[in-house]
Amino acid sequence: MCGRYAATADPDELIEAFEVEVDATAETSRSVLVNPQSPPAGTPDYNMAPSKMAPVALTRVPRAAAGEQTAETDPVRQLRLLTWGLVPAWAKDPKVGLRMINARAESLLEKPAFAKAAAARRCLVPAEGWFEWQASPVARDAKGKPRKQPFFMHRGDGDQLGLAGLYEFWRDKSAADDDPAAWVVSFTIITTAAEEGLDRVHDRQPLVLERSLWQDWLDPTLTDPDEVRAMLDSPGPGRFEAYPVSTAVNATRNNGPHLLERLPDDLLEGVVNPATGEVLG
């Protein structure tokens, strides 16, 4: 966790929801994908997976275009397309990002891969919700292993989620100085212990920040570890709802609004209701 989520809003909606000042989604950075991204980066994606480029909100000083001067010195809130899977600046190969799609809140400030980014390169990952797979306590699959049922988690009030994240810049030293594709700009999603109810699906969940914390979380001048640590506490249970969805989400090639449709109870087999603990099917 978190290994899949739904990023269903378009850039215009995100610019309004996250009070973005600069739309930087057109800025060039390198993709780590072998094949073209589908759906294209920056368009609604109902099955966002690691290595894809996703919309991310962050605050930093805008970069001047090649050959241009800028008098801008104050950081501004931007919307950018970043690669999911953090690639630290010191990494020898961007493939390391596949092992860093998540960062645990409990050890965030101590891990060398995340500590510097936690101090000054924090971001928000917009999402409608996230997917997680529940291992059945009673049902088995064809291989005799616990049957896994995908669930979709979202805010009960329907509000946009701001998942706490970190971002980094990695440069391919073999590329030319003026090659914009030399840079991989990547992010990771911070996870924490799952709240009551959601822990019946999985023991971890993304850290979802309340809007009241967005300004401080994105502030690159807020670098005190204790202040950062204080924002890593979950506000407690009650914000989210979870319901089962089709196993179509298991395959990353599948996409579309149908992936978020609730699976009827009569199609469930050995599934634990997150709210009640009752075994269904």
Rank of each mutant, 00 (worst) to 15 (best):
E278P: 00
R147G: 06
D178E: 12
D23K: 05
P88D: 01
I189A: 06
R80W: 07
L267W: 12
A89E: 08
P126V: 13
A142I: 06
E27T: 14
D93V: 01
K143Y: 08
R60D: 10
T192Q: 07
G156S: 12
L161P: 06
I15E: 02
M53L: 10
Q78V: 10
P11Y: 03
K52F: 12
Y5V: 09
P274L: 06
A113N: 11
A17P: 15
P50C: 11
A17Q: 09
L81N: 00
A117G: 02
H202P: 10
K92C: 01
R211G: 03
F240M: 13
W133D: 05
G85S: 03
G85P: 01
D233E: 03
H154L: 06
V96S: 00
K116G: 08
L218T: 13
A6M: 11
F131N: 03
M1V: 15
Y167A: 02
A103Q: 03
A182F: 02
F152E: 10
R211Q: 11
R229Y: 12
A26G: 14
W133G: 07
D266N: 10
A7W: 02
A9G: 06
T25F: 00
S186R: 00
Q160W: 14
I189K: 02
C2W: 04
S212K: 09
M153R: 01
L213C: 15
A118H: 04
L267A: 09
T221Y: 08
P62K: 01
E128F: 15
R155V: 11
G3W: 03
T70G: 15
P206F: 00
P206C: 04
V208T: 15
L232G: 03
S38E: 09
I101A: 02
L82P: 03
K145P: 00
P235D: 12
M1T: 15
R171M: 14
A164T: 07
R80E: 02
H258D: 05
W90C: 06
F240H: 09
M53N: 14
A24E: 15
Y243S: 08
L98G: 13
K148L: 11
M100T: 01
V279Y: 05
P88A: 01
S31G: 09
D199Q: 09
E72M: 04
A57Y: 04
L198W: 03
T276D: 05
Q149L: 05
S136D: 15
D219G: 07
F131R: 01
E27M: 14
G197F: 00
R30Q: 15
A66L: 15
P150I: 13
D157Y: 11
S29P: 00
A91F: 06
D45N: 13
I101Y: 03
A17M: 07
V61Q: 08
A135M: 08
P220K: 04
P55Q: 03
M53T: 12
L161V: 12
P88C: 02
P150V: 13
Q205Y: 09
P244M: 00
G281Y: 00
A119Y: 10
M1R: 11
L58V: 05
G281L: 02
G144T: 07
T8I: 14
L218H: 12
R30L: 14
G236N: 03
A103F: 02
T43R: 00
